[in-house]
Design a protein around this nucleic acid. Structure first.
Lengths: 113, 113
DNA sequence: ATCTCAAGTATCCTTTTTGTAACTACTATC
DNA sequence: GATAGTAGTTACAAAAAGGATACTTGAGAT
């Protein structure tokens, strides 16, 4: 892999595109949490640690981008299931690499102190 | 790889740690741009498309985290070289995966319209 | 009737981020 | 002396993001 000025312009664009979809404080965390299975709204709110307002907005955006599906279940009280889509699996490697990096970085920081 | 609730708590933390270091609009873009070689301040500003104010702040943070080195050269006008550190190479896979994803996502979107 | 629980929404406010544009300091050049 | 190029900083404003809390709606349980 070479790093010319032109190839970097492409890379820059791709990075930006990715950040537009999964950037911000919560989207990757939500995807990561949803990997352990489908979740209801409040359940997700608890596990991710987001307030309902934020969660609602983030989920709508993830749904728009085809990364999460929302299913209303005919139970009483009505429940909703949020679940990863097949397309979201294309992000698996990104998530895996970020998890791995975060993990090793924390170890590095801790051992240095 | 299994996705239990506990392993997801770990994953969540790691993702958060990563986002704390390279999250935001510019850091990954700057790292990506710097992959084509060391750059001066204004050069970086032009290529990345950031104003000096933002660039200055972002570079300081990247330097603090050991991802970028800053070298003052004894030229007239004084110039400064910003360069990737060895440690920043640990992010190569993350960057590569994000680039790949952004690239395929754009193709998908374009072909759908 | 009242309480509870689900999934959200509405309101309000604070913090963070981003951007613009001007300005500094230093030197070299015209 | 005026101008330009380097690397930033400062001041100010605008926008985006994030957070806390209360409220809504509908049905079942007490």
């Amino acid at each position: 892999m070479e790093h010319t000025v032109e190839s970097c312009a492409k890379a820059k664009l791709a990075i930006r595109d990715t950040l537009d979809v999964v950037g911000g404080k919560w989207k990757l965390v939500l995807l990561s949490v949803l990997r352990s299975g489908k979740k209801g709204f409040n359940e997700l709110s608890r596990e991710a640690g987001t307030s309902p307002r934020i969660l609602s907005k983030e989920l709508q955006e993830l749904e728009m981008h085809g990364l999460v599906s929302r299913t209303v279940c005919d139970t009483k009280p009505v429940t909703v299931q949020y679940e990863l889509t097949d397309y979201s699996k294309t992000l698996d490697k990104v998530l895996a690499e970020m998890e791995a990096w975060g993990h090793q970085h924390r170890k590095k920081i801790v051992s240095a102190s």
